[in-house]
Design a protein around this nucleic acid. Structure first.
Lengths: 242, 242
DNA sequence: ATAGGTTTCCTGTATATACAGGTTTCGGCT
DNA sequence: AGCCGAAACCTGTATATACAGGAAACCTAT
């Protein structure tokens, strides 16, 4: 029977949930057939118009693909990030209904090289900075390598957080007030290290998002976020409000 | 009576066009009431379910606002201010104090391929679209390949403008009110054509900006903007005021 | 065996009907 | 006057029904 909790929700929404649940649980894989409208009528005892609305809306939302005369299928997911917002990757993945996990490659205090010092607008004379290298995974697949430097002055506790539990972005957003963000998007062929970490095929470029954040006029963190261009793009939509 | 041309279009689409036309002509101003479902039934001799679908979709597209028990209203128009990201490349280059020039490779009316039709959200049955391919140059160096398709219905005069004098973005910004913009940034290895046009070295990826623009709920133009990743990146800075 | 027509299943559209529930207006009663 | 309930509209949801048209499988005749 259909979702018994959420009993207030309209019927077409319950049908949508019924399909979504099957997709999330892996019962329906990408490109596989989803029940036809008439099958839903029989299975869920709803009218075809209600089943039609559920499938139509899911298709409009990009989760399903419909072909007249053929059937309805689970759409291929194309991973998309948001260009403008400073988002937490774990949340983004979970909002897509997928499972998030990560591998912490390193998390340590390092001495400044002049290149990094320059990027961080710090005098290279001084202090050490924190550095972490994390591979973020979506449903077990390599999604993003996060290569991040953090100003130890601005976030002294950063070195002691558990990156398995809290992503750097989540920690920094919660603990350091953000005043300015700079995003640079670029493309490049991956270094051997990045290529290995992301398990990339040959001759595939990276889409790289460089993010620098400031608080109180001082740079807090520099992050280089590497993605395989094969499966990643950044999208933003701007609409009139209503 | 309803739109007599476009007689192939489904009825709910004609109802949408009927409303859109009134908005475009200024007959329906922002925040004013649009005909209720029952009024549309009487005026256009369609069933309420069809009127309902038309209004529901227009609301979903952001052009109308619906309030249960009250009515349906034209949404607030948001001016170009929020859509500032859409820039004219000629201006950008000149603002950097460099000289702008371009090469118009092609500028013609073409028949729709199904891939482009899909991208443009148009039925591939019908109409032709305009296509132009331009190489934008900064100080004589290849900067960007602009591969653009324009909906002939939305901007019929596009085919006759002089692209040497006016860039597509400049023309469209000035002549078609912009309601929605979608940007997607991706990376890929260049095709042979693009590589030649941009005079790119071997093994260098492209940074590609795909821009789709809508007006009155209809797609106006799709542009693929190719840049050599060797010499190009996209940057934005967000400052928080409070 | 193959070409061509038929059947079957699917989505897409259109309509009439029904009821629920929110909002506003209007009129009557106190 | 002020309160309150009834009406009049509105959108939102749900169903049954109908036909069109695309796609694929199947079957038949040559």
């Amino acid at each position: 029977m259909i979702n018994t909790n959420n009993s207030i929700a309209p019927l077409y929404q319950k049908v949508k949930d019924y399909i979504l649940k099957k997709i999330e649980q892996g019962e329906l894989l990408p490109n596989s057939r989803v029940p036809s409208e008439n099958q839903l009528v029989a299975e869920l005892k709803v009218s075809r118009m209600t089943a039609n609305r559920a499938l139509k809306e899911l298709a409009y939302e990009g989760l399903l693909t419909r072909v007249a005369g053929v059937g309805t299928f689970v759409a291929e997911v194309q991973t998309k990030g948001h260009l403008v917002e400073v988002r937490n990757i774990a949340e983004e993945v979970r909002e897509r209904g997928h499972s998030y996990s990560n591998i912490v490659v390193s998390h340590e205090s390092v001495t400044l090289t002049s290149a990094v010092a320059n990027e961080m607008e710090l005098p290279n004379s001084v202090e050490s900075v924190y550095h972490s290298l994390i591979v973020h995974q979506e449903d077990g697949k390599m999604l993003q390598v996060e290569d991040r430097y953090v100003n130890a002055q601005a976030a002294p506790e950063y070195i002691s957080i558990d990156l398995k539990q809290t992503t750097p972005a989540a920690y920094l957003l919660a603990n350091v007030p953000l005043h300015k963000v700079e995003h640079t998007v670029r493309a490049a062929m991956p270094s051997a290290t990045i290529k290995t970490l992301l398990q990339m095929d040959d001759n595939v470029p990276c889409l790289i998002l460089d993010r620098r954040t400031w608080s109180s006029g001082k740079l807090v963190s520099v992050a280089h976020l590497y993605h395989s261009a094969q499966s990643f793009s950044l999208t933003e939509t701007i609409k009139r409000d209503s």
